[in-house]
Amino acid sequence: MSRKSILLIEHEASIGEVLRTCLSEFGGWRVILSNSIQEGVDLCMATRPDVILLDTSISEIDALIFIEQLKQHSMDRAIPILLITARASWFTLKQLHQMGFAGAIAKPFNPSTLSTQISHLLGWSEKEF
């Protein structure tokens, strides 16, 4: 079975590289890195990832519009979106689902357990990737 792919949308290059390394080394995933939501929407359409991990602190003027585009596209293709945010505890899982997200991961995150945390939120077993 081919390994799972994750579209990572992170505007800070250094954090993006840390996340990419964590997810590829500890999770065994193929990581597609984007530094903007608009690029993420385009990559989502081109690559059809298994999951999208979105940093919510992206500082774009039209971020909400692009997030809605990303959510719409991911729902059409059944691609779950996980948020990575310092505000993860502000929302219940039910609230996140109502907003169209599969879950949230708190910042700061533990690099060694990040892939396990994502798998747990998505209901994936390690045999799947």
Rank of each mutant, 00 (worst) to 15 (best):
T21P: 00
E60T: 13
L7V: 14
H97T: 12
S89N: 12
T92R: 13
S14G: 08
K71Q: 15
S89M: 07
R3A: 01
L122D: 03
K4D: 01
E10M: 11
A102H: 05
F26V: 12
S119M: 04
R87F: 06
G100R: 06
L54D: 00
E12M: 07
V51I: 06
L19C: 01
I105S: 06
C44W: 04
K94E: 13
T113L: 09
L8G: 03
I58K: 08
R30Y: 07
H73A: 11
F66Y: 15
S57C: 08
P49D: 05
T56K: 10
R30D: 11
L54A: 01
L33H: 09
L93Q: 13
S2K: 11
W29A: 14
L64Y: 13
L7Q: 13
S112L: 14
T92S: 15
S125L: 02
T92A: 12
T113C: 04
V18M: 15
I81P: 01
H73K: 13
C44R: 02
P80G: 07
T21L: 12
R48L: 12
S34M: 04
L19V: 00
Q72V: 07
F101C: 03
I6L: 12
I79K: 06
E17V: 11
I32M: 09
A88E: 11
H97A: 14
T85F: 08
V41D: 00
E39C: 10
E39T: 15
A88W: 09
I52K: 00
G40A: 11
T92W: 11
G123R: 02
A102M: 05
I6T: 03
Q38W: 05
I52M: 03
L122E: 02
M99S: 03
S14H: 13
K127W: 02
A88D: 12
E68L: 05
Q69P: 00
R77G: 02
E25C: 09
L33I: 03
T92E: 12
F101E: 03
L114M: 03
I15G: 07
D42L: 08
F26I: 10
T116I: 13
K4Y: 00
S24K: 09
L19W: 00
A63T: 11
E60I: 04
I67L: 07
V18E: 15
I105K: 05
S24P: 01
D42Y: 05
P111C: 07
F109A: 04
A106E: 12
S24V: 03
W124F: 00
S89F: 05
L23C: 02
A13Q: 14
D62W: 04
G28L: 08
S57G: 12
S36T: 15
T113K: 09
S112W: 13
R20T: 14
